[in-house]
Design a protein around this nucleic acid. Structure first.
Lengths: 231, 231
DNA sequence: CCCACTTTGTGCGTGCTTTCACAAGCACGT
DNA sequence: ACGTGCTTGTGAAAGCACGCACAAAGTGGG
């Protein structure tokens, strides 16, 4: 007799799967807009740009929401993924650093429809404070703690210069924000339990450059050698 | 006797390593600015926010550039990583979609110093064409092929609305651009051999929301149960 | 010249991710 | 009621990535 059941109904969705759920969700919403009622794993996978086996395994982590011989019901799957991602509730977001990028994010409409609400804009520059961006007044960074508390901010976005980013992150954490999206090109130091995600434009370009160079090298060598193995 | 040697001097750097090299590079440049001459894997790893064993293994893929008992020479390592990433040459970048985000990227100074040069800005809106952004004239999208050829553009950045992104990608590819950085929230369809990287703000927020919700659920349950196992 | 100390480079075990391939399950027509 | 055809859900295998722990290799002091 096995005393411990194999898994005590574990809620552990693999990280790689979590990163793909938003992609599936978007593909599904697009299908929904077109009035599609059901979709097969094959079709949804190709819309999301992944392998169909991977898609099925990913969805299987949420439960068995498909019907064999038919596929998945679009509307139901949209709801299940949204719920799993926590989009059925409303997340208040604060953006610190109202430069070009901060303004771009503030004006980006795609958030509201997906459970995110820009609740506050903050900046250190007195010139900026009081200006209205995307129907919100820019407030001074010294109000960060107040704003987090009064608006119930739970996600902080950092679009400041690199030099200020760590300070802002620390203040976010101390004010109780434990989810941070960082656009500044620095590695943030935060205590355990705080979740930081980094978006770094110049890193993406560098990765592209690496592959481009490798392709060019390969092509060059291949041309020289009149192309033997092209693995 | 084994007829085939284990590895024919393979140039295969793992993808995960490539993604971290830019982070190391930035940390090293920061050390260089401070006048540091050598650095240990331990120190560099902590500056880059990774495990020191991982850092050493990553660097070992480039060759043996460290000295046991001493560490790595900063300047030399900067050069080796830059060369490996292809930053010793100059990459011409074209940005299509001069909205808030496109402008933010065009004005972002961090590229020039790292081998990237914004060579052209394009937009479909006649109102936008002719305006000057970041010392460059915005040109109409119909000039894409000309611009790619005359400026030698090898990296395309897409910051258009979702609906236009696929069309722009296709035109980039047909014009000979095989590295694309896509900010539009769609999955791009491109032929083999074309490298697309995606940056998606709302996906990052959704991943943060997932973890935040999971933390909240866990805390809630833990509080109810007076906290047993806190794995 | 040798010894103690430091730090790199890497073999190896472990766990996560992807992919294949197929049994299980459902719908529909006869 | 039953077979046919399609699609899901999932073992099992292969491939990657991570991190420990240690031998190898260098430095510097006596």
């Amino acid at each position: 007799m096995i005393s411990r059941p194999p898994r005590p109904r574990e809620r552990g969705i693999p990280e790689a799967t979590v990163a793909r759920l938003p992609v599936y969700l978007r593909a599904l919403q697009s299908l929904q807009d077109r009035g599609t009622l059901t979709v097969s794993s094959e079709d949804l996978a190709s819309a999301a740009g992944v392998n169909s086996a991977k898609l099925r395994k990913d969805l299987s982590h949420l439960g068995s929401y498909g019907t064999r011989g038919v596929g998945y019901e679009v509307q139901y799957l949209v709801y299940q993924i949204s719920r799993e991602l926590g989009l059925t509730q409303d997340w208040a977001v604060a953006i610190v650093g109202i430069g070009n990028l901060g303004r771009a994010l503030a004006n980006y409409g795609g958030f509201g429809t997906r459970g995110f609400r820009i609740a506050a804009l903050l900046d250190a520059d007195p010139e900026m404070v009081g200006q209205s961006v995307a129907s919100l007044d820019v407030r001074h960074i010294d109000n960060l703690e107040d704003v987090v508390r009064s608006k119930g901010v739970s996600i902080g976005v950092i679009t400041t210069p690199a030099a200020s980013a760590q300070g802002v992150a620390t203040r976010f954490v101390e004010a109780g924000v434990s989810s941070i999206l960082n656009f500044a090109p620095v590695v943030l130091n935060v205590p355990d339990g705080v979740d930081v995600r980094k978006v770094d434009l110049s890193i993406e370009l560098q990765i592209l450059a690496f592959h481009a160079q490798r392709r060019a090298d390969g092509d060059g060598r291949a041309a020289e050698r009149a192309g033997l193995e092209l693995t």
